[in-house]
């Protein structure tokens, strides 16, 4: 591993000053960054540990009523926070469906947002990768597989964003608070995860300080569904987060996002608009899911993910309205807890 300096500043000002060094990187739990450093995909000269900074911990309620998730909040603390469980349990479900218990004990909110693109070539420094460095090219261009994107990709990158949490945050319309030496600003979550065509996200020297969830959250009637072969410690082949507000038999607000299909948690205003004013039900959900997938195309041997993603979106919407018994036992899982006895077969 390339030698590096390590700092654990105790003021935001000190952290931001350290981050003006172009070789400096913010460091939360290290669960992704250290892997990238070990394989040589990331070679920072300085790590700025943000876990001692004031105001980056915990879940709190902002003055305007929104939920504020600290950037250095551990995933495991997020997942069992009383405010989250009461007002946005979707986020708990998404977090608990990801990684492993040990990783969640270390990983932070902001670190989750800024995970490396999910493509094997990103972590192989010998492979050309336009997302990793300035060399042109993409080793996955001719050989994309089941883990690559079907939406929003282009020839510069076919990688997907790996996060579960971000899919839930996207569905809830979260925004991100960012600090620089010039001051604080707020951006939509999507700004952090631009499509390959849109260039880089965080400007140099910027630090995420919090994630904000709108008040009157959609998180109550919400569901995260994650499809993957392995029940734990596996990225989503495809996932979906859905949140609905229903009044008088009509959907009044809606959030819908997909994971595992694009470089960003995938939302489309048209899909959400199609839900609003409609009665919740299979036809409504199918129409929204079809709009969400509009324009999808295989980037390799992954065309099946398009139809699968539609079904996953429909499932998430359906279970947001009608929770399945036992679904909390395996967060995000298509399955509930295993039975001890033989099921009755119809």
């Amino acid at each position: 591993m390339k030698p590096f300096d390590y700092h654990r500043p105790e003021t935001l000002q000190a952290a931001l000053e350290l981050l003006t060094d172009p070789g400096a990187t913010a460091y939360g739990g290290g669960t992704n960054l250290l892997d990238m450093m070990k394989c040589g995909a990331a070679l920072p000269g300085t790590l700025v540990d943000v876990t001692a900074l004031p105001g980056l911990q915990g879940v709190s309620r902002a003055a305007d009523g929104r939920l504020r998730l600290g950037a250095a909040l551990r995933n495991s603390d997020l997942a069992r926070d009383p405010l989250i469980l009461a007002e946005a349990p979707l986020l708990s479900e998404a977090v608990l469906s990801g990684a492993s218990g040990q990783i969640r004990n270390m990983a932070t909110t902001a670190g989750n947002l800024l995970q490396a693109p999910r493509c094997p070539h990103y972590a192989l420094p010998e492979s050309p990768c336009a997302r990793r460095d300035d060399r042109t090219g993409c080793a996955a261009r001719d050989h994309a597989g089941r883990d690559h994107a079907v939406l929003g990709w282009d020839d510069s990158c076919r990688a997907v964003h790996p996060s579960d949490l971000c899919v839930g945050l996207a569905a809830l319309g979260a925004t991100v608070e960012i600090a620089t030496l010039a001051g604080r600003s707020e951006q939509p979550l999507a700004a952090l995860h631009p499509l390959p065509s849109a260039g880089r996200a965080l400007e140099p020297g910027a630090l995420i300080t919090a994630v904000l969830i709108p008040a009157a959250s959609l998180g109550l009637r919400a569901r995260y569904v994650k499809v993957r072969e392995r029940t734990s410690f596996a990225f989503a082949l495809v996932s979906a987060a859905a949140g609905l507000e229903i009044a008088d038999g009509r959907i009044t607000r809606a959030g819908l996002a997909l994971g595992g299909v694009a470089a960003t948690p995938w939302r489309r205003a048209e899909a959400e608009a199609a839900l609003i004013g409609a009665a919740p039900g299979p036809e409504t959900f199918a129409r929204a899911a079809a709009l969400l997938l509009q324009g999808a195309s295989p980037s390799g041997e992954n065309g099946f993910k398009i139809a699968l993603a539609e079904r996953v979106a429909i499932r998430a919407l359906s279970e947001a309205v009608t929770p399945r018994a036992g679904q909390a036992a395996w967060p995000g899982s298509v399955f509930d807890a295993p039975k001890e006895d033989t099921p009755d077969v119809a």
């Binding site: 569904v225 499809v227 993957r228 072969e229 029940t231 699968l308 079904r311 996953v312 499932r315 298509v334 399955f335 295993p338 039975k339 033989t342 099921p343």
Partner: peptide, 15 residues
């Protein structure tokens, strides 16, 4: 014994 989600094809061995 396996259980398979009829729409999403996710499989699990149950016994």
């Amino acid at each position: 014994e396996v259980a398979i989600d009829p729409e999403l094809a996710q499989m699990r061995v149950t016994r």
